Simulated scan of single mutants.
Amino acid sequence: MTGRFVAIGDSFTEGVGDWNAAFPNGVRGWADRVAKQLGRQDPAWEYANLAIRSKRLHQVRDEQVDRALALQPTLVSLYAGGNDILELRTDMVALMREYESIVARIAASGARPLLFTGFDIPLSPVFEPMKRRNWLFNDHVRRIARAYDAVLVDYWCFDEYSDPGLWDADRLHMSPAGHRNLAAHVLRVLGVEHSLTPRLPEREGYAGLVAGLRRETAWLGEWVVPMFGRRLRRVTLGDDLQPRWPEPVRPADGLKRLARARQTTAG
């Protein structure tokens, strides 16, 4: 198995939560980890990652799909729609029609689509209404995966992600351990041998009611309120960012080394 892996989508695929200054945009993520293992299996594997945080599905369609297919990939991962689900007025029927159109284009190009369901993130009760939308999203993704012979990573079924240690401080993005664990799942589904051993963090003890309430209040103030504030102002954390790996690279050459070389050239 060899080819060219191109990743498209939002923060999930960009790698937010897996913070590492040695990599472009200051993050690493599951896709880089998967690409590294593919390169170990066969040094001829190539990899590009066009995903940028905060992108809605229509932005992924308009800004990333043509660019991805122009790279003539053999495998294209797509995870997008989560930011749309957080919008109360999103028409889910129209959203999934748009999602399917993207998958259809990927499949028609000859590339194999790699799709993901969404996990029911263990958030505050404030976000409970979003679960029904996520379930609807997942049902459609499973149907679309069958229809287009896509590889499906059924993320919703991975019970270990109920562990807070697999999530970053904002509770919306995976921690480094979460990204590493997901990379292992992706490689398993692809049938690729790898050296990734899941490192699940130790569970935290019960902090007590008062401490728990303080933590919830701090989380709402530090992460949730600013997020919705940005939405009202129509600005995102990805507005000034470029894709991490816009052109195909060979992970076997070392992604850190390639990142350093790119910085040197840019400087």
Rank of each mutant, 00 (worst) to 15 (best):
P122F: 11
R143D: 00
E100S: 03
S124N: 06
P113T: 14
R146W: 04
Y148H: 15
V93M: 01
D149F: 07
R105V: 01
R132I: 05
I144W: 07
L115E: 01
L136W: 14
L95A: 11
M92L: 15
V126T: 11
V93F: 06
P125N: 01
Y99V: 00
D120H: 13
K131N: 08
A107M: 03
H140P: 00
A108T: 03
M130L: 14
D139T: 11
K131M: 00
D139Y: 10
T117I: 03
V103F: 14
F137L: 13
H140E: 13
R133D: 07
A147N: 12
V93D: 13
L123Q: 08
P122S: 11
A145C: 12
M130S: 09
E98M: 02
R105D: 02
A147T: 08
I106T: 05
P125M: 00
E128N: 13
P122I: 09
A147D: 13
A108H: 04
D139W: 08
L123A: 07
F127G: 11
E98A: 11
V103A: 12
I106A: 02
V141W: 00
N134A: 14
F137E: 00
I106F: 04
E128Y: 11
P125L: 01
F116V: 04
V126P: 00
E100P: 05
W135C: 00
A111F: 02
A108K: 11
K131Y: 04
S101H: 05
T117R: 02
L95S: 07
W135H: 11
R142A: 09
D149R: 11
M130P: 02
A104I: 06
N138K: 05
M130K: 06
A145E: 10
D149M: 06
V103C: 13
I144T: 13
R142Y: 02
R112M: 11
R146C: 08
F137P: 02
S124M: 04
V126H: 04
E100Q: 13
S109C: 07
A111D: 01
N134G: 12
L136M: 12
A107E: 06
D139V: 10
R105K: 12
R105Y: 05
V93Y: 01
N138H: 06
R97T: 15
E128L: 15
M96W: 09
Y99P: 03
L114P: 07
A147P: 03
D149C: 07
L123W: 07
A94D: 09
A108D: 08
D120C: 10
F116E: 05
A111Y: 04
L95Q: 09
A104W: 08
N138W: 04
V141Q: 00
I121C: 05
L123V: 03
A145V: 10
I102C: 06
A111V: 00
S124K: 00
F127S: 10
A145K: 06
P122H: 12
A94T: 10
F127I: 10
N138I: 03
A107K: 09
R112K: 15
V93L: 06
I121P: 06
M130Y: 13
A94H: 06
S109M: 05
A107S: 13
R143E: 00
A108W: 01
R105A: 05
A111H: 02
T117N: 02
V103M: 10
F127N: 13
R97C: 13
D149P: 06
K131Q: 04
R143P: 00
P113A: 15
R146P: 03
E98T: 09
I144C: 08
G110W: 03
R146M: 10
